[in-house]
Computed example of a mutant assay.
Amino acid sequence: MSRIAKSQLIHYSRKAHERGLTAAFGGNLSLLFGGLVFIKSTGAVMDELNAGDIAVIDLDGRQVSGVRPSSEYRMHLAIYREREDVRAVVHLHPPYSIAASTMAGKELPIITPEAELYLGRIPVAEFRPAGTRELAEKVAEAIKESDAVIMERHGIVTVGRTLREAFYRAELVEESAKLWYLAERR
């Protein structure tokens, strides 16, 4: 499984960069399998990610591999603890979502039927510094009843039973933010 998990993380990390959902070092994806979390390492670049850039940690945050996990590992772990149904977490820095986070209030309005069906609602979590326990707690609280969260001035987090599901939810969040932003600017 570790080879498959790493392959999926590489595929969707590169796809996120190709689609403009994140840039450079920003963002991180993870998969939970067999009590272990496979997650992008700290400092790895999304469109250059390779198997050596993927860290493995346990659910207590202890390193299993020789690679240091992303500084956002606390947030990923908090989500896995909060939601037993979640097996994948996608955290990206898409531009329209970040812009909307400064204007939308406590929740991004849902515009399309597709977003209504696959996301339901998109809460906006109040700003907390990146990589902190405070941010992890805010996001875990917001994700209790939603599969997507926008973090004020930071990015988005989406979850799913698979990495594919979490990734396409991230695309829907950014599409929703873009449509809302464009409608607000007219």
Rank of each mutant, 00 (worst) to 15 (best):
E165R: 07
A130I: 12
A44I: 03
A140M: 04
F38G: 01
P69C: 02
F127E: 01
V86D: 08
G20W: 13
E174N: 14
I150H: 11
N28R: 08
R169M: 04
I110M: 12
K106E: 15
P94G: 10
L31N: 00
G20S: 13
I111Q: 14
H17L: 07
P95R: 15
E165L: 01
S30Q: 08
R83P: 00
L31S: 01
E171C: 08
A177Y: 15
S2K: 10
E126F: 09
R14D: 07
K178M: 15
G26W: 01
I39F: 05
A23Q: 12
A16L: 11
G26T: 07
E107I: 07
E126G: 09
R87F: 09
I143G: 03
H11K: 12
E175W: 15
R153I: 06
M1A: 06
A142S: 14
T158Y: 11
R3I: 09
Q63E: 13
W180N: 11
E174P: 15
A148W: 05
R153E: 13
R133P: 13
R83S: 04
V86L: 03
A142E: 09
I54G: 00
S41W: 02
R74C: 00
G160M: 00
L108S: 14
V45Y: 07
P123Y: 10
R3E: 14
L108A: 12
K15T: 12
A140P: 05
K138C: 13
G66L: 03
T158I: 01
E145Q: 11
I54K: 00
S13T: 02
E82R: 11
D147W: 11
R133M: 08
A23I: 08
R133C: 02
S176D: 11
A78T: 03
E152S: 11
S30F: 06
L92M: 06
P129S: 12
L21Q: 09
Y168K: 01
L9D: 02
E126Y: 12
G155S: 05
Y73K: 13
D47T: 04
I156C: 06
G120Y: 05
G155R: 00
I54N: 01
G52F: 08
W180K: 05
I54P: 00
T162C: 03
A130N: 09
Q8I: 02
V89D: 05
D60I: 02
G155W: 04
L179S: 13
L77K: 01
E107G: 10
A24F: 06
L59N: 04
R14L: 06
L108H: 07
R121S: 12
H76F: 04
G131E: 02
R153Q: 13
L49D: 00
S97H: 09
A136C: 04
E184D: 13
E116K: 14
